[in-house]
Every structure is written in C-alpha cells, then in structure tokens.
C-alpha cells in the first residue's frame, strides 16, 4: 500500500498542488489527470526521489507504513516507466532484461527468469534482437517487464502510452494492468488521456489549478 499525506508543491512562490492525499492498494492503479504544468510529473519525482531542487514541496509518503520521502532514490526500490521506453540501444533485448534482475538472483536462475519474461511477451524469437528492431508497442512492453524484473516495491507510470498509436494502446494498457496485478504492487499513473485512466480500472484523481 502506497500512501501520500498532505502533499503540496510550489514553484517560484506559485502554489501548484495543495494538500493532496491518497492511498493505493497493492495490485491497484490510481490515475492522476490534469492539465500540463500542474505538477503531475513533480509528484512522480517526489515519489521517486528525483525532485529538482528549484521546487518546494511538503508532505509525506509511506509504503506499507515505512516512510519513503526521507530515503534517497537508491533505497526506495521504485519502478518508473516513462513516455520513452529507454531500452538501452547497445544491448540486446535479453541483455536489457538481465540488466534489471537484482544482484541477489542466483546465477543459474538469471537466464531462465529473463527468458520467462520474454515468453510472457510472446517474443522468444527476439531475445538477441536490438531495441531498434522492435516496434513501438513491443518496446513499451519490454520496458515494463524490464522494470518489473527489478522487483520494485511500487510502480510509477508517467504517460507511458502517449507515444503509441491508438490501436496498440489498448493492448499495451491491458498488458500493463495484468502485469501490475500479477506483481501485486501499488501503481500510480499520470496521464492526459481519460481512456488510459478508465482502462486501469481504478480510482481517478483530477488535479485542477489551485485558486485563491
């Protein structure tokens, strides 16, 4: 369970978000919508621990009642998926997946685990392909599985579908939701598209400009 308490964000004395609180149960996706520039991405940066120092924030975040906001990024075990799939172009697909497996995974288990992930994608023939040989939809799916293989404790999705064409979007959305349910971790989705929010079958928060 991911819980955010009284989150406020301001930039250059301009309040963007005030007193936002929510909680997300394991295996569920909370969607956040709102106009651009409202601070959606900053909320994700707050949760992942990469907030730019020029912004002022207050508020708390807890994962299973353990404080997150006091930890540095590297100990938070956060998974983040962005618009760009960010697959490493100089590594094959299987290498990209192996890259994400935690150190503690035993050596003989590593390759089978990565191959299992490929099988779930239905792309076993692409193990030695390079990211540039994959379609946009395939790249998005590999990127999600790569993130999940790193066994994050919670997942942040920053408009991960916006670069896909509409026909693909539906498939990828369903795939993402199914995988999140299987991994049984809380996920937060930031999007412009209300269809994204609907497809995630969870709560949806609309952020609007703070008025005084």
């Amino acid at each position: 369970m991911l819980r955010v308490n009284a989150f406020s964000l301001s930039s250059n004395d301009k309040t963007l978000i005030q007193n936002l609180s929510f909680s997300i149960a394991d295996g569920h996706v909370l969607s956040i919508m709102g106009p651009s520039g409202i601070g959606k991405s900053s909320l994700l940066n707050f949760l992942s621990g990469t907030l730019s120092p020029s912004l002022t924030v207050s508020g708390e975040a807890f994962l299973n009642d353990i404080a997150l906001h006091t930890q540095p990024t590297e100990t938070r075990k956060v998974g983040l998926l962005q618009q760009m799939p960010l697959l490493f172009p100089h590594m094959s697909i299987i290498e990209n997946l192996l890259f994400a497996l935690p150190d503690k995974t035993r050596k003989p288990d590593r390759l089978p685990l990565a191959h299992d992930a490929l099988k779930r994608l239905g792309m076993t023939d692409k193990a030695n392909a390079l990211p540039k040989d994959l379609s946009g939809g395939q790249q998005a799916r590999v990127a999600l599985l790569r993130t999940l293989l790193s066994q994050p404790d919670y997942l942040l999705l920053d408009e991960p579908f916006s670069k896909l064409d509409p026909a693909l979007r539906r498939d990828v959305r369903a795939f993402v939701l199914a995988e999140i349910r299987q991994a049984n971790i809380p996920a937060l989705l930031v999007t412009h598209d209300s269809d994204d929010a609907k497809a995630m079958e969870g709560e949806c928060l609309e952020l609007s400009i703070v008025k005084f």
């Binding site: 990469t50 990024t73 956060v78 998974g79 983040l80 490493f88 994400a100 150190d103 790569r146």
Partner: peptide, 12 residues
C-alpha cells in the same frame, strides 16, 4: 540522462 537514471533505478 534518463537512460542513466533508469539504469540506476533498475539496479543501483
């Protein structure tokens, strides 16, 4: 720089 950030999120 997102590539590097993502790499370190996956595996610090």
């Amino acid at each position: 720089e997102d590539y590097l950030l993502q790499a370190n999120r996956l595996n610090h």
